[in-house]
Design a protein around this nucleic acid. Structure first.
Length: 402
DNA sequence: TGTATACATCTGCCTCATCC
DNA sequence: GGATGAGGCAGATGTATACA
């Protein structure tokens, strides 16, 4: 944790932590040093002094525990509420229906920052509850006004840019805004259980239970703000007409509202016997999907399933062999797969957001191809790891033999 | 940028062998 | 018998690295 963040947290809790007091004791103000050297140790600095003053007041518990912005006077509250409302007519609010989420919060965030800088004298313990009732009603009315404005903007949803003519998405639209892309790659299915010794496990997995998966998301930051707009899976499957092969299915959202349908359909592809396999999915994709299920008020079907992550066995085996252990590198070096016109994963969020704003679907189709190749590569990589480990086990006894 | 994992390193504790 | 040091082990900690 940075010192700056620590200071911010201290301000938020009112500077009452033991650490804060200790710091306060050892860094007296210049005036305190000059006027009362002996008393300097007990005289806190300006900001914590305010907090200490709060704690000394009746009802200080409320004041200390209340978020600082609330204590920053009605003037700040009004400013935070009024700024977006006033600014909205000056711009094409509907054009920023989705993007505006971040932008619109900046005035409020700035107000919070400003509140944190409000001179201590203004942040009295009574501030949170001292707002007159009519004023609170005004604030609520202001909030309702903002909500109405926002809802109208979302419903209008006109794109930022001139609408692109290239809006074709691959696959079939199986639900409003949800596209299913199907593919089948004829190939022999491993005929025996795949040993998981390469992953330091003693068991084996039935190939028919394996489900390779990979997501494309709106960002890497994690947390609740990031969502998966595409889920790709691959499994070995015997089709009545096409025979045996690798079945690749991808779900792609073209609207925010399609997320619930996508999560429901993905759940239907899982069974209690399913063994998930991914590349760093245990740390990234799975937690992300679990969060999305939770936010959608749906039970999380992932936690109960077995999960074999290929990243760590790959890293163990190939660390130092190539420049890194990214999936693309492993794919190129180990599997000799060369992608044509591949869109880097880091550009996937921009491709999707651009499409949402009315842009071309071309890059989104490239994201789908990238995701398709990822899950196919996972199936190849696992077979390669199993084979390499089996080979090691054959060689090592020969080396140990006298 | 957040998160989970593997791996390397550090630390403390215990056991054992050696020396005085 | 007590003091000391080497070695092994487990747990804690820090770092690197994938993911879009």
């Amino acid at each position: 944790m940075s010192a700056e963040r620590l200071r911010l947290l201290r301000r938020q809790v009112g500077g009452l932590t033991p650490t804060a007091r200790k710091d306060d004791a050892v860094i007296p103000t210049r005036a305190q040093r000059q006027t009362a050297p002996g008393a300097a140790a007990s005289a806190p600095r300006a900001l914590p002094r305010d907090a200490v003053a709060q704690s000394a007041q009746p009802g200080s518990v409320d004041a200390a525990s209340a978020p600082r912005p609330q204590a920053a006077t009605p003037a700040m509250t009004r400013r935070a509420l009024q700024a977006p409302v006033a600014a909205a007519p000056a711009r094409d609010s509907s054009a920023f229906a989705w993007v505006d989420h971040d932008v619109r919060h900046k005035p409020a965030g700035a107000a919070v920052d400003a509140a944190a800088r409000v001179p201590p004298v203004r942040a009295t313990p009574a501030a949170p509850t001292s707002i007159p009732a009519p004023q609170r009603r005004t604030d609520i009315a202001g909030l309702r006004k903002m909500i109405g404005l926002r809802e109208r903007a979302v419903s209008a949803h006109t794109p930022v840019r001139a609408a692109s003519t290239d809006r074709h998405l691959p696959g079939n639209e199986i639900a409003p805004g949800l596209h299913l892309i199907d593919a089948f790659l004829p190939q022999p299915i491993p005929h025996q259980a795949l040993s998981l010794a390469f992953a330091k496990r003693e068991d084996a997995v039935d190939p028919m239970n394996l489900l390779f998966f990979d997501t494309e998301t709106t960002g890497l930051a994690g947390g609740t703000g990031t969502r998966a707009f595409m889920i790709g899976v691959a499994d070995w499957y015997t089709d009545t007409t096409q025979g045996s092969g690798l079945r690749v299915r991808q779900l792609m959202m073209s609207t925010m509202a399609a997320e619930s349908a996508m999560l429901d359909l993905f759940r239907s592809w899982l069974s209690p016997q399913t063994v998930l396999s991914s590349y760093n999915g245990r740390c990234y994709d799975a937690p992300l999907l679990k969060t999305r299920y939770r936010l959608a008020r749906r039970g999380d079907p992932i936690s109960a399933l077995d999960h074999v992550d290929l990243l760590f066995p790959t890293r163990r085996r190939y660390r130092g062999t190539w420049e890194n252990c990214k999936l693309a590198t492993i794919e190129r070096q180990l599997l000799r797969v060369v992608r044509e016109d591949d869109l880097p994963g880091s550009e996937a969020p921009a491709a999707w957001l651009s499409y949402l704003r009315g842009g071309s679907a071309r890059n989104l189709r490239r994201v789908a191809e990238h995701n398709h190749q990822d899950v196919v590569t996972l199936s190849l990589l696992m077979q390669r790891l199993v084979a390499a480990d089996a080979q090691d086990r054959e060689v090592i006894p020969l080396l140990d033999a006298p």
